[in-house]
Design a protein around this nucleic acid. Structure first.
Length: 673
DNA sequence: TAGCCTCGAGTTCA
DNA sequence: CTCGAGGCTA
């Protein structure tokens, strides 16, 4: 290297290309860089300068050519050297077993090994390497002819421009490798955020986004999209030092091709079935969408003997499960008024399978969000359940249906008819009517399932009690009799007795939970605890001035004003008195005394499922030692306790902020057990 | 005054 | 879990 100045520019350029290619391979294919980004940049800049000074040295496979080329008119159609088959699919374990039986019968042996790997929901691509250099890449097309998208493929850093060759190894004259180009979910989300910010329509799913990116006429646009690729096989297999698919994957990886790390070899079909089930559960862990598992007979010899039918190999199957995104009709946008008076639009959908569950409704947040995504009543929309369990509506699938109109929030509250308000600068519409039936009902539901957490009385029961006029407020709930409850379907002697008992028992819930259940604006779990500790009784809180309330931790002028205002309302004061005379607790008890312990001043976050105890129990034990347990990771977090199937966002944030990760074992030690 | 931290609120399905 | 917004701090 030190002698670079003495070398001819031509030799140095070739050397730089090779070194840069190698480091791109380390970074993008092996995910194991050898040099720092800055070092890479320095080498890259050197090559750029060299090529600028000597334009004749620029080769099409140079790393500098990955930034995209000027727009071209059209993609040429090209023939694939060998046809790209398609996969027969199976959707059940029974069909998988049946296929296995067929394979065994045809081969005359039950000694068959399989290779599985995630089936990426992307675009099938054929890459041609001549004498070790990438020369052309094309889409699958009809399997025989596809579109030449070489210039766009060059922008994808995970595609090697030249093979990695061992010392003295001769590259094959022609090599055809197959892969799936995809857009990572993180890149997809970023792209959509950008499109929305630019006032454009977001793309409905990562696959469409990847297809659109790859078919850009202007490859410099493609270069800005973080496309990647998984290589999963070869066109022709002759002349390679591998006699099975598994070995060929290892060979490919060694030679510079990015193969999927989750490929697995199985000795029997039961193990294959297990892998399919496991990945259906685990697929949300991946940063790309998969819609199944590809299963291949490992041995090339067995593959050859099995052959194909209509370009569909008998030696491979796609095990497909229900997709994570689906399209369905949005029949109606309905409004639910929350316990604070906020109007929440939600979508009534024609039921559709998404990721294994049937979805029939989804929240739409607010008017602005609906119109930004351009969602309309009557449209066919894309529904997804990515990463998280809760379904979201991504946007319309293609064009709007005829006769649909942009969504408008109603001018009047759908429940009480009072004019809706939307404060300047806020996202939510609100019903200002304190007596609006929705608020009473929703806060009653909140009392039953969150504040007092009453067993045996759920949301449905509360709604029916409300409709019958039996319970219209929390005090009325405590006056409910067994006989009244039995008027409801679903309550017989025993269940009614139990329900009444747990209602009465809930009078003992601590002061902070009562405060939370009162529905004071801006008072949630944490603020309720802080208020309870600071004032110790409802009387002192009620009589406190705004300034006095501001002294409480986490409360500033806005919240203090809202709280003081709530207590100045006559009806609210009456509610407190009613509940007090019913026997609810309005004074602090021992359980709220702040704990001093070895962990005082430390904060922890828990993610995933723990084995030894539930998350609540773990949190309680930590708090008993003086620690705080929060719900989101920040720079101040002392540790993230990681259980089984942890939440991805917490984990990545913790890694980024270098927050220590704790195993359950380490948590045990922390608790001194 | 910006940016981090934390809290509140609403949410789906089996 | 995610978003929005208030509170706090450098």
């Amino acid at each position: 290297m030190a002698s670079s100045r003495t070398k001819s520019p031509k030799k140095r350029a070739a050397e730089l290309r090779e070194v840069l290619d190698y480091h791109l391979y380390r970074y993008h294919v092996l995910d194991d860089p050898e040099i720092a980004d800055a070092e890479y940049d320095a080498l890259y800049d050197e090559l750029v300068r060299l090529e600028e000074a000597n334009p004749e040295l620029v080769t099409p496979d140079s790393p500098t050519q990955r930034v995209g080329a000027p727009p071209s008119d059209k993609f040429l159609k090209v023939d694939h050297p060998s046809p790209m088959g398609s996969l027969e699919k199976v959707t059940t374990d029974e069909a998988l077993e049946k296929w296995h039986q067929d394979v065994c019968k045809r081969l005359g042996t039950s000694d068959v090994a399989y290779v599985t790997e995630p089936k990426i929901d992307g675009l099938s691509i054929n890459l041609i390497y001549e004498n070790g250099a990438f020369v052309r890449g094309a889409t699958r097309g009809d399997g025989y002819r596809g579109e030449d998208v070489t210039i766009n493929l060059r922008t994808i850093k995970a595609i090697s421009m030249r093979m990695q060759l061992q010392n003295g190894e001769q590259p094959p004259p022609l090599l055809e490798v197959r892969g799936e180009v995809y857009l990572p979910l993180s890149g997809f989300n970023e792209l959509n955020q950008r499109l929305i910010a630019e006032g454009k329509k977001p793309t409905p799913n990562p696959r469409n986004a990847a297809a659109g990116s790859l078919r850009q006429k202007d490859s410099s646009i493609t270069a800005q999209r973080p496309l990647s690729i998984w290589i999963h096989g070869l066109g022709r297999k002759d002349g390679l030092p591998a006699d099975g698919h598994w070995d060929s994957l290892l060979w490919l990886r060694e030679h510079g091709f990015r193969t999927n790390p989750y490929a697995e070899r199985h000795e029997d079909v039961e193990s294959v079935a297990r892998a399919c089930r496991e990945w259906e559960r685990r697929r949300i862990e991946l940063d790309y969408e998969i819609d199944g598992i590809v299963i291949k007979v490992d041995s090339f010899d067995q593959q050859r003997r099995l052959g194909s039918l209509h370009e569909r190999p008998r030696w491979a199957r796609a095990y497909k499960w229900a997709p994570m995104t689906a399209q369905t009709r949005l029949s109606k946008i309905l409004i639910r008024v929350g316990r604070t008076g906020a109007l929440n639009p939600w979508a009534l959908l024609e039921p559709v399978e998404v990721g294994g569950v049937t979805v029939s409704r989804a929240t739409l947040h607010n008017e602005e969000d609906i119109n930004r995504k351009d969602i309309r009543e009557g449209d066919i929309v894309v529904v997804q359940r990515a990463g998280d369990v809760i379904p979201q509506i991504v946007g319309p699938a293609g064009e709007h249906q005829p006769g649909t109109k942009p969504f408008k929030m109603p001018k009047k509250c759908p429940l009480c008819g009072v004019d809706v308000v939307k404060p300047e600068g806020e996202a939510m519409h609100r019903c200002p009517n304190r007596a609006c039936p929705s608020r009473g009902l929703e806060s009653l539901i909140n009392w039953v399932q969150a504040a007092a957490d009453i067993e045996g009385v759920g949301e449905q029961s509360v709604r029916r009690l409300w409709d019958l006029g039996l319970v219209r407020s929390v005090p009325e709930l405590y006056r409910l009799t067994k006989e009244q409850l039995m008027e409801l379907d679903g309550y017989a002697e025993i269940s009614a007795t139990n329900a009444i008992e747990s209602i009465q028992a809930s009078k003992q819930v601590p002061f902070n939970r009562v405060l939370f259940g009162l529905n004071i604006p801006d008072v949630g779990w944490v603020t309720a605890v802080n208020l309870a500790r600071h004032f110790e009784s409802v009387d002192r809180l009620r009589d406190a001035s705004q300034e006095e309330i501001e002294e409480v931790e986490g409360i500033g002028p806005e919240r203090a004003e809202a709280i003081a205002e709530w207590f100045s309302d006559k009806a609210n004061r009456q509610l407190v008195e009613d509940l007090r005379s019913l026997g609810l607790r309005f004074e602090i008890g021992d359980e709220l005394k702040p704990v001093e312990g070895p962990l005082t001043g430390h904060t922890y976050v828990i993610t995933g499922t723990l084995e030894g105890f539930t998350r609540d129990e773990a949190a309680a034990e930590l708090e008993a030692k003086g620690a705080k347990v929060l719900n989101s990771v920040s720079g101040k977090t002392n540790g993230l306790v990681v259980g089984e199937e942890p939440g991805n966002s917490k984990l990545t944030k913790a890694r980024k902020l270098e927050v220590p990760l704790l195993t359950e074992q380490q948590l045990f030690e922390l608790l001194g057990r």
